[in-house]
Design a protein around this nucleic acid. Structure first.
Lengths: 300, 300
DNA sequence: CACTCTTACGGCACCCGTAAGAATC
DNA sequence: GATTCTTACGGGTGCCGTAAGAGTG
């Protein structure tokens, strides 16, 4: 039994396929397969049931997985405590992120990661929450910044921060709509993100509380474009605070006072349950340090 | 960092020399040296100070050792829990034993070990307690049956059982000495083991309590020979219970009643502190099951 | 037929052992 | 000089990747 075998087993057991797992341990599928077979031989147990189309954990494998994870974690601790210098992580690190994070604080996070871990090759995937969760589950991502708490059994999440939003409009329109209420809203177009997005939930929640229904919704799946639409006078938009402030400063937008405050959108860092790598701990730590959804971002 | 490297480190750190350690991990000194160097490189720390004539643990090494041991133990647990069958131990196992155990229950212990672990190659070293402790400390033995508790920092011990002894004499002499008291003893020769032996302590303790001093001591460093001397009429002897009973049955000896009972000699199983191998647990378990200092042994 | 995993096989790298060297007592 | 550990080097084993095979949906 080897630590490498256990590592291979962990990924093979938790990834969508051996192909994904092989990528994580920098092996071809064939070599991974053999390594797993060697592990099975060494403990004299079938960890995978290969009769079907895809390899699936046997009951022995299910029992073995948490043990393997614990041992790998222990090994990582020992390795980390032993080495004097702050662990310089190497290898690949795949971050997932919603668009909001990607245009506010994510770039700074990536930069700080690159600075403290020069040997770490980082890649970023920006997508909607569900897609990111899928990829996390499959083993294609290490962590992802997603609104809300993890719901899937294989994933966990910890709170990062809340993102706050402001209702804005182009200066010309803002003059006409001084304060927002059910009446004034009913005459307006609302620029917002697609259904299912966390921000849209917040907006709907707010509309319910106020008891308002907008005349029309203009859906746009990108913050930059949405901000552009609002600035172009397409309607009232709910924009991230940082973005809004930046555009207000440039006099491209004006914020609209709300009688009722908007809920903030709570983002969390999602990751694979039982990921034994110390890299995860480092990502959590630095992620918490870097998080700031109200950051001005590259558009300011 | 590899489990093999950690194993090598454990033995190198706790054995008298790399040569002894190399033997334990089935390597040449040169290969062991390289493996240790690789471990040091992987955690980027000098574990050994090689300036002197012999390699000695650095402070980093001292700190690392218990961590390595813990991880090895954890790995052993995982390995054991994973494999279905009762762990069939393989490799070498070196038992140390005092003479008394060696002629009473040790043979049966070895037999039961050989039966349950056919792939285990067992060797036995019979010597006095101090020598066995030396060899344990050096890493040349796995466990040793020694009277009394472990005192050296690198060793530990757990109680096994007490050995009881009987005062005996040849039938002709026994008739003359019906019960033993200070007076009768002063006219007798006592056949006993050398000074420093645990049995001799018990005998001296008993003599003190009775307030007696024998006329003469006949020292013999082997139980078989001592029993022979007593049977030949050399004097009164303090013999192990099993041996005494066997010879009494053959009418070669008679036991002598004692007004004061003799203390029993408490034997313990000694082993290296922090030995992470599951083999040790198995030795302790089976040792406790097999122990019986009053067993008749091969001479009966 | 696309996909997933295993087997066969050639090549390279790693690791072990022998032998010689360096340093200490 | 004896002992202990390290370095140099040849040889064999093990492991990885490519390619082909087996089985499933």
């Amino acid at each position: 039994m080897t630590l490498k075998q256990l590592e291979a087993f962990y990924w093979a057991a938790t990834c969508a396929s051996f192909a994904t797992a092989a990528e994580r341990v920098h092996l071809t599928v064939s070599s991974l397969s053999k390594r797993l077979a060697e592990l099975e031989a060494s403990i004299d147990q079938n960890l995978f049931d290969r009769r079907g189309h895809r390899a699936v954990l046997t009951s022995a494998g299910e029992r073995f997985l948490p043990q393997a994870v614990a041992l790998l974690q222990h090994a990582a601790e020992v390795r980390q405590l032993a080495s004097t210098g702050q662990s310089n992580f190497a290898g690949q690190c795949r971050l997932g992120s919603g668009e909001l994070a990607s245009i506010t604080w994510l770039p700074q996070w990536v930069q700080s990661l690159r600075a403290s871990h020069p040997d770490l090759s980082i890649s970023v995937v920006v997508d909607i929450g569900e897609a990111l969760a899928d990829r996390l589950e499959k083993g294609e991502l290490d962590v992802a910044v997603i609104a809300g708490h993890a719901r899937r059994p294989k994933l966990r999440s910890i709170p990062l921060a809340g993102a706050s939003f402001a209702l804005c409009a182009a200066p010309a329109q803002a003059q006409r709509v001084k304060t927002l209420n059910a009446d004034s809203i009913s005459q307006q177009t609302l620029v917002c993100l697609p259904r299912g997005s966390g921000v849209t939930h917040i907006l709907d929640d707010w509309l319910d509380r106020v008891g308002a229904r907008p005349r029309e919704r203009l859906v746009c799946n990108q913050w930059g474009a949405a901000a552009g639409l609002v600035a172009a006078g397409a309607g009232i938009g709910l924009l991230p605070m940082g973005l809004a402030k930046a555009l207000v400063k440039r006099q491209q937008l004006r914020t609209i006072r709300c009688p009722q405050p908007l809920r903030s959108l709570e983002y969390e860092l999602h990751f694979r349950d039982e990921d034994p790598r110390p890299l995860l701990a480092e990502l959590i730590r630095t992620g918490r340090d870097s998080v700031n959804f109200d950051a001005p971002g590259p558009f300011s």
